[in-house]
């Protein structure tokens, strides 16, 4: 908010290990707020929406910042920045869906600062990367005083600003499943300008059987279409086991669109428009993903 200053005083911590961070969180509980890139939090603090008494900066914890792969998937540390994601050759090559979603987020300046963990935990419905992660069956890894636990990202995201972290816990990693062979993915975002929050974003994956029928599909819609992103299992079920032709894809897109529950007061577009355009975007994304399975290259 322009030149407005931070309105409340707070105590500031820079732990260097995950366990130190957990100790601080456990001590101050709801009065503590985690900060990583700060691109959302600081704006909210300037607006006076959030007034934390204790601010815990995670960026000094080196163990939270990495991109690596193992046999089954991709591990991204929670404080990995969007810039690091878009610059990763591994991600661009093997997880183009994540690359596309990460690149669609914000501006260069924001991507330099913002982190994947911050983006997930801030849980705004228009976020780009969560739908892409859900389409890759991603899992959120959580650390707390009682040890670690994992949760499918879909369940981790509970609503506007609501996540499944308990007091004293923090998100440490996002684990995305490596797309099976014969997979194709696509991410599409609709926004007013390049540097805009999404009016709508769509992430899809289709994985085909050897005979060309759809083995598995993921259809995920974000962008202020409900309290959080919407994974359309109805659309996925329509596609599963079928040979993907345009009429079927249109039907699936229709099904996904029918699940939208946009707020009536959205600034970026009316609910009716979102529902209308969701059909178009899901259809286009599925066709693009299908095309990519055939191309065999970009997944």
């Amino acid at each position: 908010m322009g030149t407005r200053i931070l309105l409340n005083d707070f105590e500031y911590f820079e732990p260097e290990t995950i366990s130190d961070a957990i100790t601080i969180l456990a001590k101050y509980r709801k009065d503590a707020k985690l900060i990583a890139g700060g691109t959302d939090l600081l704006v909210d603090m300037k607006k006076g929406k959030i007034k934390p008494k204790y601010l815990v900066n995670l960026m000094k914890i080196l163990d939270l910042r990495y991109i690596t792969k193992d046999k089954r998937g991709l591990r991204i540390g929670a404080t990995t920045t969007f810039r690091e994601i878009t610059a990763s050759k591994l991600i661009k090559r093997e997880y183009p869906l994540l690359f596309e979603a990460a690149e669609a987020m914000g501006t260069v300046q924001i991507r330099n600062m913002a982190t994947i963990g911050g983006n997930i935990c801030n849980a705004i419905p228009s976020a780009e990367i969560p739908p892409a992660l859900v389409a890759l069956d991603a899992v959120a890894k959580i650390a707390g005083r009682r040890g670690e636990r994992s949760l499918p990202l879909e369940e981790f995201l509970m609503g506007i600003g609501k996540i499944a972290l308990k007091s004293g816990e923090l998100l440490t990693e996002v684990y995305a499943r490596s797309p099976p062979p014969r997979s194709g993915t696509a991410f599409l975002k609709l926004s007013r300008t390049t540097a805009d929050l999404a009016t709508l974003n769509v992430a899809v994956r289709v994985t085909l059987e050897k005979n060309g029928a759809c083995k598995e599909a993921r259809v995920v819609v974000g962008g202020g279409v409900g309290p959080t992103l919407i994974r359309s299992k109805k659309a996925e079920a329509l596609l599963k086991g079928k040979v993907l032709k345009e009429p079927l894809i249109e039907k699936a897109a229709q099904a996904a669109s029918a699940q939208l529950k946009p707020r009536p007061t959205s600034i970026r577009a009316s609910p009716l428009y979102k529902i209308e355009v969701c059909k178009v975007l899901v259809k286009r994304a599925l066709l693009k993903a299908l095309e990519r399975t055939k191309a065999g290259g970009a997944r």
């Binding site: 300008t193 390049t194 929050l197």
Partner: peptide, 13 residues
């Protein structure tokens, strides 16, 4: 009332 919600063109547009 902010550049987040009132959209003016920027370089990539």
């Amino acid at each position: 009332p902010s550049f987040t919600d009132y959209k003016i063109f920027s370089a990539p547009d």
